[in-house]
Design a protein around this nucleic acid. Sequence first.
DNA 1: ATGAAAGCGCTAACAT
DNA 2: ATGTTAGCGCTTTCAT
Lengths: 339, 339
Amino acid sequence: MRRATLKDVAARAGVHVATASRALNETSRHLVNSATLDRVLRAAADLGYSGNLSARTLRTARSMAIGMLLPDLTNPIFPPIVRGAEDILRERGYSTWIANTDDDPKITAASIDAFLARGVDGFISAGSRLHDGTAEQMAAQGHALVLVNRAVDRADIPSVTADDDHGVRLALSHFVELGHRKIVHLAGPQDLSTGVHRKRAFVQGLADHGLDREPERVAQCEAWSQREGHRVLSGLLRDEKIDFTAIVAGNDLIALGCYDALRERGLTCPHDVSIIGFNDTPFMDHVAPPMTTIRIPQYDLGREAAKLLVDLLEDPTGGPRSIVLPVELVIRRSTAPLR
Amino acid sequence: MRRATLKDVAARAGVHVATASRALNETSRHLVNSATLDRVLRAAADLGYSGNLSARTLRTARSMAIGMLLPDLTNPIFPPIVRGAEDILRERGYSTWIANTDDDPKITAASIDAFLARGVDGFISAGSRLHDGTAEQMAAQGHALVLVNRAVDRADIPSVTADDDHGVRLALSHFVELGHRKIVHLAGPQDLSTGVHRKRAFVQGLADHGLDREPERVAQCEAWSQREGHRVLSGLLRDEKIDFTAIVAGNDLIALGCYDALRERGLTCPHDVSIIGFNDTPFMDHVAPPMTTIRIPQYDLGREAAKLLVDLLEDPTGGPRSIVLPVELVIRRSTAPLR
DNA sequence: ATGAAAGCGCTAACAT
DNA sequence: ATGTTAGCGCTTTCAT
């Protein structure tokens, strides 16, 4: 059976479509007589009416839809973010589009355009490379945009991020308490704000603890991957000049790569080297050894981003706000006192 | 600046909107003179025109959008499925809505209705409980629907699933080759097709190997969770009547729960008991011990589901097809020869 | 308090 | 080959 339209509802209630429309919309409901309101509501319920949002979008130029851009849903940090955002958006009456971009500028541009063609009211982006300018461009064009998990050097683009700095400080303090003094950082790529923040905080933290005498305390990974963690730590282990007893890894995958590199050299974690990861990716409590890591509240990151966006849409005068969410050190067994 | 409309393009090209529309649509392009075609295309490019899909949807009653229903994106089996589907859909010009339902009938119904209100052309559902009737109801209402990862007892609802039966057979053969004879199955919930298929295949497989003399070879988990795996295996270990040297777990999480239960009793895997999981969830290669498991091609499940749906939409006469994708035994270190 | 009418941007049937 | 016209379903201004 054909889906009921407003016209059907109006006919059944014996009123004009305009009246039916008014009755069915919260904001105009007060304009209609309570008896007719009842009739319309009843008719709508009888017919299982639920409106045509394409028509409404066309007429009102508001879609109650938002587009979510992310590099790759398959990367375990994203699902909780998307879930958090979708939960809030659904609660508030919005629907959610998703697109995986692989951080490819072409796919990103095409996805943005597709979302725009569908009249999205705003965007949540989880994949803004620091210097590709996409975010800035979107902001310049006046599109509502909230960045999540990554920020951009511009105060007028709202973002929701985790407190990476504090996470690094927690990691360093933990190591220092355990007696470690020779600590290295396997930094993630520097084209993402998380990468630069964590690295910067590490260098600063080393200085704060008076541990910065040697320069080679940071090694650079070219990707946030296990493979890179393995490659870079292997290099460090071959290099006689650098010795260390503890590693702050850019993220859990890099830390996992460190596990591999240590194992290959016959070293064990945490006996020979302690490691702290970042993110508390699922199952890190079950890897061997269970990984000490900085937990990022991904689900809340998604929720807060969605809240920020909706608030922005509903009150554009509010001005952009950015939120930094607290992180937490989860101590497991990849860290141990210095022998 | 205001987004360009077809009218703007037509004006700039000096033609009527209908001509512009024809020029811009593949199917009607041949109707327009090649010189005017050029002018329209040029004008569209100049203006960065990309159409208003709400208007088109309203007019054509086709949205080129599909809705994806899943219980919980945070469950690691779903992201690759969604990613696979989205990849195909984007390739074919469709956009993707997502909704997490938590398998809650209310949320599911509301999400379906929201998708319908937005005029989706079809649905991909990854969360069809076997007996809740939602899928059947949708099919009855004539909505295009493809089930993924789970099937329903109805031939006319297309589905894409993994070959669970073969997976169980692979697991059993592996155990038998290793010398195991006392094998139990920790079955997943029976309201999902995967749960019943795996259990049925296990019972059948035991018979095929002549290993079915004892009845208590199957224990039932109430959820696909680590916690349930732990609870149920603990029960089995306390039960003096049942002894076993090998476990086919309903999925990897249940298997992880088995790890926990064994550890609590001072038993080790695979020394005392061998375990095979199901799914090859991310990081199962890094748990301790690395888990032998049946790999399900989740990404391809998503891709095939999307293909099936699009084919269905583009040629409804094709009739429903269902696809079963091959699985693979991944041997790691949670299985060992019988001592 | 309700109805009439216009129009959002687009496509398709019809006319030329 | 192109223009004219109508209308998808809805909201909103204006009139009553």
